[in-house]
Write a protein that binds this DNA or RNA. Structure first.
Length: 229
DNA sequence: GCGACAG
DNA sequence: ATCTTGTCGC
C-alpha cells in the first residue's frame, strides 16, 4: 500500500465523512502529470432506485485510438445515501473493488463527477486519486459549486469555474452547440491537462469516451446483459 | 432564513 | 441516478 494512501473507514455517518474530507484534503496535489498518459480509464456506477445494490465498473482505453483495452465490473452493496458533496463515500468503495480486478493499470482515471470543483475541494475524483495514488480528474455533467461565464459554442472553448475566489475547474465545450461538461483536476494532475485529455477522448458525443463507455458497461451489468466474472 | 445541491 | 416515446432543432 503506497505511503500516500489515506486509511480511513468508509462506513461512516455524513458528519464523520465531512470530518474525514477535511482531514485528507490536505494530501491532494494539483500539479502536472509526471509522464504523458498513454492509457486512460473511465469509472462509473449504476443502481436501481431504492435499492442498495450498486454495479461498479472501470473501462481502460488506449488514448491514441480510444480502443478498449480492458473492462471490469463488480456487484456490491452500499448503505451510504446520495448526499451532494459526499458522493465519494457512496461510490468509491465499490469502485476500489473493481479497480482490484484490473490487470492493466491506467495512467490516468476520469470520474463521472468533480475533483476540486467541490465545496471542500475534495470531490470523488480527488478522493479516489488519493486512494489509487494515481492521476485522476473529474468530468461532470452538471455543477456542484462554482460559477462561470458561458464558453463559446464551439467545441474546445472553455471558461473557468470560480468558487470563493479560486479557479476550481472549467466549463468545457466538447461538442458544438451542446451544453458544456465540467472538468476539474482530482489529484496528481492540473486543470490544463485534464481539459486536454477530455478533448482527446472525443468520440463524437458530449460525454467523453471513458465515462460514456463505463456508463454503458455498468448499465449492461445492472440489466444482466453483461457477465461480472 | 432561503435557496442550491456531482451521481 | 433511474423510469421512458416521441419530438423539436441543428
Amino acid at each position: 500500500m503506497p505511503p500516500t494512501t489515506p486509511v480511513h473507514p468508509w462506513d461512516v455517518t455524513p458528519e464523520e465523512a465531512i470530518a474525514i474530507q477535511q482531514q485528507v484534503r490536505q494530501q491532494i496535489r494539483i500539479e502536472p502529470m509526471p509522464h504523458p498518459a498513454e492509457t486512460i480509464a473511465g469509472a462509473d456506477i449504476s443502481f436501481n432506485k431504492f435499492e442498495s445494490t450498486v454495479y461498479a465498473g472501470i473501462v481502460v482505453l488506449r488514448l491514441s485510438d480510444l480502443a478498449v483495452i480492458e473492462e471490469v465490473g463488480v456487484v456490491s452493496e452500499t448503505d451510504f445515501p446520495y448526499v451532494p458533496g459526499l458522493l465519494s463515500f457512496r461510490e468509491i468503495p465499490s469502485l476500489l473493488k473493481a479497480w482490484e480486478k484490473l490487470t492493466t493499470i491506467p495512467d490516468v482515471v476520469m470520474f463521472d463527477g468533480h475533483g476540486t470543483a467541490h465545496p471542500r475541494r475534495i470531490g470523488i475524483a480527488s478522493h479516489a486519486g488519493l486512494w489509487l495514488n494515481r492521476p485522476t480528474f473529474g468530468c461532470g455533467k452538471s455543477v456542484l459549486v462554482g460559477r462561470y461565464h458561458d464558453p463559446a459554442p464551439e467545441r474546445g472553448d472553455w471558461s473557468p469555474m470560480m468558487h470563493k475566489g479560486e479557479v476550481v475547474g472549467a466549463a468545457l465545450r466538447t461538442k458544438n452547440n451542446v451544453n458544456p461538461v465540467y472538468v476539474s483536476p482530482g489529484h496528481l494532475i492540473d486543470l490544463e491537462t485534464a481539459i486536454q485529455l477530455t478533448l482527446q477522448c472525443d468520440g463524437g458525443y458530449r460525454i467523453p469516451e471513458p465515462t460514456r463507455r463505463a456508463h454503458l458497461l455498468v448499465n449492461a451489468i445492472r440489466r444482466g446483459e453483461h457477465p461480472v466474472s
